[in-house]
Design a protein around this nucleic acid. Structure first.
Length: 466
RNA sequence: GGGGAUGUAGCCAAGUGGGAAGGCUGCGGUCUGCAAAACCGCUAUGAGUCGGUUCGAUUCCGACCAUCCCCUCCA
């Protein structure tokens, strides 16, 4: 069974056929480092993480780039406001970004290139584009000449005339010295507003336009044509459309085979905005006591092409769902039955695994994959007396594999008890034996507050760290 | 104004031209000294609204409504 993805280019689901058998080159648009990532950014990044993980699970050797945009209007403006050098300012948010994605259990990309480290490569491309007649220099910058690139609009599915018609009335041409409103900047010549931010170039001091960085970095690190490029839907136009134009005009080769875009999340049915007070970052949520694991679960378990309605209730639901999974893992690890393997259940496990995999193969249908997982859990519990430790081991091995894709099943917990905790547990056992239930319940509460849940089972007392 | 998407239970959410997955929550029960965990049962004759095609529509088509995205630097 092959993997299939919805390709924005064709607006349909296509079988994934990589350039090189067994390999997948992946360029994922990373953050603009002018602020802390918000959960909307993180949703897109988590989708990219799932994509990365699933390709790896399916045996592809993934080569992935995730870029950091560390020079643009906002980074410059904010750094000047803070009276900081651009690099010092962006460093704060680069660090925050890495903290967030680590906390959310992201797989590491192979490269995290920063735009400012690739100025030389960008200039090379711009020069090439001028030479080939796809770009021209004006008094305030270098622009890509959209009319020279016949395929312009193929990703966003708009034709140039529509683009111009739609833009008229909304844009004033005289603001820029470009030939056509839809032409976009490759290089912006220095102005006083840029402060100390400038690089030398054959077109005078200045800074690169936004889109060119991705073309330069992806070509340098992944080659002129790559398999998959993704980002948020808002990037389809103009960012990715412009990347295609620049790159393909420059190389004469297809830039990207598969374009995947994540739909935005909304909060309580509304757009997330600072003014609405529904703007959340990961650190806000963890400060309020939610775990990154629950955030990951909440953001990943809705299909990436569906609008996700984020709410605190959703996080609570994520917590509850994770608890069911945790309890299941706990139950499996505590199976005492040393009898032979139940073959009927092994067969069911094979079916569950196959449903899990084929669901993710189909454009990362995680909802269906999760259904397979939960069906497995229910099916196990229904007849758990009939299943042995061998069955449990088989399931745990599947869960471990599934977690390679999901990244939220595994939970690091201390398995040993402290001396104090041991003593409390012994004390409770004694109290319970003497039918001093008041005392035994008190100790149970104390331990629960310490994050240890007690369960009295037929096989005796069992404890579990939450 | 133009283009693109989405709308399924209290909440999250999937598949499907013919019996509406799964999760969370809630309620009742079993187990337990009480819990916890688990199990059993109940919770959409209904799919934004209105039409059309069809023997049959949640699924296909159209209109309308709502929300989101894009229309020069928002994930």
């Amino acid at each position: 069974m092959s993997i299939r993805f919805y390709n924005t280019l064709s607006r349909s689901i296509e079988e994934f056929i990589p350039l090189k058998k067994g390999e997948a080159s992946l360029y994922t648009c990373g953050p603009t480092v002018y602020n802390y990532p918000h959960i909307g950014n993180l949703r897109t990044f988590i989708f990219e993480d799932l994509l990365h993980r699933w390709l790896s699970c399916r045996g592809y050797k993934v080569k992935r780039v995730m870029n950091l945009t560390d020079v643009d209007d906002k980074t410059i403006k904010n750094s000047i406001q803070q009276k900081m050098a651009l690099a010092d300012y962006t460093q704060i948010y680069k660090k925050a970004f890495f903290e967030d994605i680590e906390g959310l259990f992201f797989l590491k990309a192979d490269f995290y290139p920063a735009a400012t480290d690739y100025i030389k490569e960008m200039i090379e491309i711009i020069q090439g584009l001028i030479k080939k007649g796809f770009a021209y220099e004006s008094n305030d910058g270098v622009y890509f000449k959209v009319s020279a690139f016949a395929d312009y609009g193929k990703l966003a599915h708009i034709d140039q005339e529509t683009l111009l018609a739609g833009a008229s009335g909304r844009l004033s041409t005289d603001e820029y010295s470009k030939e056509q409103v839809s032409d976009f900047a490759l290089w912006k010549k220095w102005t006083a507003e840029d402060g100390a931010v400038k690089w030398d170039s054959p077109f005078g001091e200045g800074r690169p336009g936004w889109h060119i960085e991705c073309s330069a970095m992806s070509m340098k690190l992944l080659g002129e044509t790559l398999d998959i490029h993704c980002g948020g839907v808002d990037n389809i136009f103009p960012h990715h459309e412009n990347e295609i134009a620049q790159s393909e005009a420059y190389t004469g080769k297809p830039f990207v085979h598969y374009w995947l875009h994540a739909v935005h999340l909304v909060v309580d049915g509304e757009k997330m905005a600072k003014s609405k007070g529904n703007f959340h970052t990961l650190r806000d949520l963890t400060t309020q006591g939610y775990t990154p694991r629950a955030v990951r679960y909440a953001l990943i378990t809705t299909h990436y092409r569906k609008p996700l309605n984020f709410s605190f209730d959703l996080l609570k639901q994520a917590d509850s769902s994770l608890k069911r999974i945790d309890d299941f893992v706990f139950a499996l690890k505590n199976v005492k039955n040393e009898g032979s393997k139940n073959e009927e259940f092994s067969g069911f496990l094979v079916k569950s695994q196959s449903k899990f995999e084929s669901s993710l193969d189909e454009d990362l249908n995680i909802s269906e994959a999760m259904a397979a997982l939960f069906e497995l859990i229910s099916h196990y519990y229904e007849n758990q007396k009939n299943y042995s430790r061998q069955n449990a081991v088989e399931i745990l091995s599947f869960l471990e594999k599934a977690d390679t894709a999901l990244g939220f099943i595994h939970k690091e917990v201390k398995e040993e008890l402290s001396d104090e905790e041991k003593a409390l547990m012994e004390e409770r056992n004694l109290a319970k034996k003497n039918k001093d239930f008041k005392k035994s319940d008190e100790i149970r509460d104390i331990l629960l507050k310490k994050g240890i849940e007690l369960r009295d089972t037929k096989e005796g007392l069992v404890w579990k760290r939450l």
